[in-house]
Write a protein that binds this DNA or RNA. Structure first.
Length: 455
DNA sequence: GGAACTCGCCAC
DNA sequence: AAACGTGGCGAGTTCC
């Protein structure tokens, strides 16, 4: 039952064939829509650009660069802001120069820079998504590649066009980009995604009883508990999300309290890196975050950092101490043997550091769960000659183009394969699995997706 | 004229 | 001791 290297090989082999069929199937692109959206974006970008060039920074810029002024150039912008206008660096790039990314510009508090951020966002949508969709489509269909031989974590990657990074969280970008992707006529797009598959997979390695409980018992909620501890209040969904994306996942990936504090305070809590006053930060039930934390004796960013340091220590040394010990053992074993062995049968022979040694088996095996399911659903879809088709995959989710008459049957089959048959095939899976679903109406583009709870 | 680099940003 | 894991890719720039 424990997969061997031969099993691992077969997973790759069958995975490539299944992905090949999805690639050949491809997905419809509404080319006319793309052209219309691009025209709209160009107009908006031109307006915003005119605004910006009329501002103080904009005029200074064109005075320095004349005809060579390029609003897309980060180098030029950094030169104008930091060398010409002598603005104090808000932030540095990894190589130590003045940063001009979203966060850095936000911190400078110069109104026209917000215009620049809007321009960047729209330009990104146009040149990274809409233009490649048009470039890559053949007769209105794109055929994204899904690669199994590139990611060192044994995940997949996707290119030409990349199907795995289409905007989802920013509502406006999501609407424009996913609005271009449509099902075949008379069909509908459905996406199934494994709920918390990386956390579940990690439990299969370290078997931490407290994390196992969180994964097994639907009445418990790890992210909500962490949000309660971090923000010292009954958390709403925004704070829960903040705890999840600003603390829990970064901690799993190897971040530490300094980085997490920055995530939680600046990115999510909208709190400054200073002493806090009443009325700062996001609002939670009519109360500002700063007031909640000040009430608890956390009166400044530095005190919040100490608070998070304590929580980090509690997280690894008490709450999930079995997971913590597993990381030590796992790293020691890698150092001794020179490779790590995944529960899916893969040997990862590579020069890696501690974080990579602990992350790869988890990320890799979590993806292998999806891959196994993809292969099996692909097999059934052929054998039973479905009209519905697998068309893509995003690490922990699979995307299908389904005929409405087959919808209920497809959902039943996918749920059975992903949540029942997979754990039967791999007995190392010691936690229950579940999937969430998003579905679009017949003929509707992917932007119209909605959570689905039927059957 | 292309390779290689930096920076920035999208996804999980 | 140091400090976020895995990808793709566009745009600008520099080097050869």
């Amino acid at each position: 039952m424990t997969p061997t290297t031969l099993d691992a090989y077969k997973l790759m082999h069958n995975g490539i064939l299944a992905f090949g069929r999805a690639e050949r199937q491809g997905m419809r692109i509404d080319v006319e829509y793309c052209h219309n959206q691009m025209a709209k974006l160009e107009l908006k970008i031109a307006e915003l650009k005119a605004d910006f060039m009329n501002s103080k920074v904009g005029r200074h810029w064109s005075k320095c660069y004349g005809k060579k002024t390029n609003i897309n150039s980060t180098h030029q912008l950094a030169y104008i802001l930091y060398d010409k206008r002598k603005i104090k660096l808000a932030k540095k790039t990894p190589s130590g120069k003045g940063a001009v990314d979203d966060e850095a510009l936000g911190m400078l508090n110069i109104p026209e820079l917000n215009t620049l951020l809007s321009i960047r966002k729209l330009t990104k949508v146009k040149s990274t998504y809409l233009m490649p969709f048009i470039r890559e489509q053949v007769n209105g269909v794109v055929h994204p590649s899904f690669n199994l031989h590139l990611a060192r974590s044994f995940r997949s990657s996707s290119d030409k066009p990349n199907f795995q990074n289409i905007p989802k969280h920013d509502e406006e970008s999501m609407r424009i980009c996913r609005g271009a992707i449509k099902p075949r006529p008379g069909h509908q797009i459905i996406e199934f995604d494994y709920k918390g598959i990386e956390v579940s997979t990690s439990v299969c390695y370290h078997k931490d009883p407290r994390m196992k409980k969180y994964v097994e018992d639907p009445r418990t909620d790890m992210h909500r508990d962490m949000a309660t501890q971090i923000f010292c209040t009954v958390p709403n969904n925004i704070l829960r999300q903040a705890a999840k994306n600003g603390f829990v996942f970064p901690q799993f990936y190897g971040d530490y309290y300094v980085g997490c504090t920055h995530n939680l305070a600046c990115t999510w809590g909208k709190l400054p890196k200073s002493k806090w006053r009443s009325g700062q930060g996001i609002e939670v039930k009519d109360i500002h975050l700063s007031d909640i934390l000040i009430e608890q004796g956390i009166k400044s960013y530095d005190e919040f950092e100490q608070h998070i340091k304590t929580i980090e220590s509690d997280f690894w040394k008490k709450r999930f101490k079995v997971y913590d010990r597993w990381k030590e053992r796992w790293w020691a074993e890698y150092q001794k043997r020179g490779y790590i062995e995944m529960l899916t049968g893969f040997k990862c022979v590579d020069i890696i550091d501690r974080k990579q040694a602990c992350n790869r088996p988890i990320q890799g095996s979590a993806f292998h769960c999806l891959l196994w399911s993809f292969i099996e659903i692909d097999r059934i879809q052929q054998e039973e000659q479905w009209n519905s088709r697998l068309i893509g995959q995003v690490h922990d989710s699979l995307v299908m183009d389904v005929h409405p008459d087959e919808l209920e049957y497809v959902i039943g089959t996918v749920k059975r394969v992903t949540c029942e048959e997979l754990p039967k095939a791999w007995d190392w899976i010691i936690v229950p699995l579940s999937v969430d679903m998003e579905i679009c109406q017949v003929d509707a583009p992917w932007s119209e997706k909605e959570e689905y709870h039927g059957t």
